[in-house]
Simulated scan of single mutants.
Amino acid sequence: MTADSTETASASPANTSSDAALPAADVAAYWAERRQYLERIRKVPEIRRRYLRASTIYLVRRILWSFGFFPVFLAFWLPLVMASFNPVVMVSELLPLLHDFVNANPEVQANTLSTLIIAWLSVGFFFLVFDLVLTPFKSPYQYEADVYMKAWEQLNHDKLPDKV
């Protein structure tokens, strides 16, 4: 190691800490402004209505998708796959099961229906959990705050220190 590299190595930690302090202040100012803006817009009735409407639509869509589409899709897709994608074979295999169900006593029918309902609900809840995780809710408050903060950055760009 030469003397020049020793001097730059010893000088770089001081520069890094002073450079890191400025962006930390910028980040703190950014998040403080964002937090204040979110507090202000939470009181706006129009955005509150938009939030309630968006959250209701989000939940209804997730529930319909999870309990409506996936169980129905699996109920038809799995037998079709097991029948090698031949609907005639699928129907010929399922007709005796349907005939046995119709001819069974009421206790067996009730047991079969409760098993199908439990299966439907378990598949629906399984897909609902994963659907809620994979497609998180996008709040109108966060969208408004993002738009505001982009404008805030543009207005305060000349006040912020130069970035390295």
Rank of each mutant, 00 (worst) to 15 (best):
residue 1 M to P: 15
residue 2 T to Y: 07
residue 4 D to I: 10
residue 4 D to P: 04
residue 6 T to L: 14
residue 7 E to S: 13
residue 8 T to N: 00
residue 9 A to D: 14
residue 9 A to R: 13
residue 9 A to N: 12
residue 10 S to N: 08
residue 11 A to K: 13
residue 13 P to C: 00
residue 20 A to D: 05
residue 21 A to F: 01
residue 22 L to A: 10
residue 22 L to E: 07
residue 26 D to G: 07
residue 26 D to F: 06
residue 26 D to R: 03
residue 29 A to R: 04
residue 29 A to K: 00
residue 30 Y to I: 03
residue 30 Y to V: 05
residue 32 A to E: 11
residue 37 Y to V: 13
residue 37 Y to E: 10
residue 37 Y to C: 12
residue 38 L to G: 00
residue 38 L to N: 01
residue 39 E to S: 11
residue 40 R to C: 01
residue 42 R to E: 12
residue 44 V to K: 13
residue 49 R to S: 12
residue 52 L to E: 13
residue 53 R to W: 13
residue 55 S to H: 14
residue 56 T to L: 11
residue 57 I to T: 14
residue 59 L to V: 07
residue 60 V to Y: 08
residue 63 I to M: 00
residue 63 I to G: 03
residue 64 L to Q: 06
residue 68 G to A: 03
residue 70 F to R: 05
residue 71 P to M: 02
residue 71 P to E: 00
residue 72 V to C: 13
residue 77 W to M: 09
residue 77 W to I: 08
residue 78 L to I: 10
residue 80 L to I: 01
residue 80 L to E: 04
residue 80 L to H: 09
residue 81 V to I: 12
residue 82 M to H: 03
residue 82 M to L: 04
residue 83 A to N: 08
residue 83 A to Y: 08
residue 85 F to D: 08
residue 86 N to R: 06
residue 86 N to P: 01
residue 87 P to G: 02
residue 88 V to E: 10
residue 90 M to R: 09
residue 90 M to W: 10
residue 92 S to M: 10
residue 93 E to R: 15
residue 95 L to A: 14
residue 96 P to I: 05
residue 97 L to S: 10
residue 97 L to N: 04
residue 97 L to Y: 12
residue 98 L to M: 11
residue 98 L to K: 04
residue 100 D to M: 05
residue 104 A to M: 02
residue 105 N to S: 12
residue 106 P to E: 07
residue 108 V to G: 13
residue 109 Q to P: 05
residue 109 Q to T: 10
residue 110 A to K: 06
residue 111 N to H: 00
residue 111 N to S: 07
residue 112 T to K: 08
residue 115 T to E: 11
residue 117 I to Q: 08
residue 120 W to C: 06
residue 121 L to F: 13
residue 122 S to W: 03
residue 122 S to V: 12
residue 123 V to H: 04
residue 124 G to V: 08
residue 124 G to K: 04
residue 126 F to R: 02
residue 127 F to C: 04
residue 129 V to E: 09
residue 129 V to W: 07
residue 130 F to Y: 13
residue 132 L to T: 02
residue 132 L to V: 04
residue 133 V to M: 13
residue 133 V to H: 13
residue 136 P to T: 04
residue 136 P to K: 01
residue 139 S to K: 07
residue 139 S to R: 05
residue 141 Y to S: 02
residue 142 Q to E: 08
residue 143 Y to I: 11
residue 144 E to F: 09
residue 144 E to A: 14
residue 147 V to F: 02
residue 147 V to M: 06
residue 148 Y to R: 12
residue 149 M to R: 03
residue 153 E to Q: 15
residue 154 Q to N: 15
residue 155 L to K: 15
residue 155 L to H: 14
residue 156 N to A: 03
residue 157 H to L: 15
residue 159 K to I: 06
residue 159 K to G: 00
residue 159 K to E: 09
residue 160 L to D: 09
residue 164 V to Q: 06
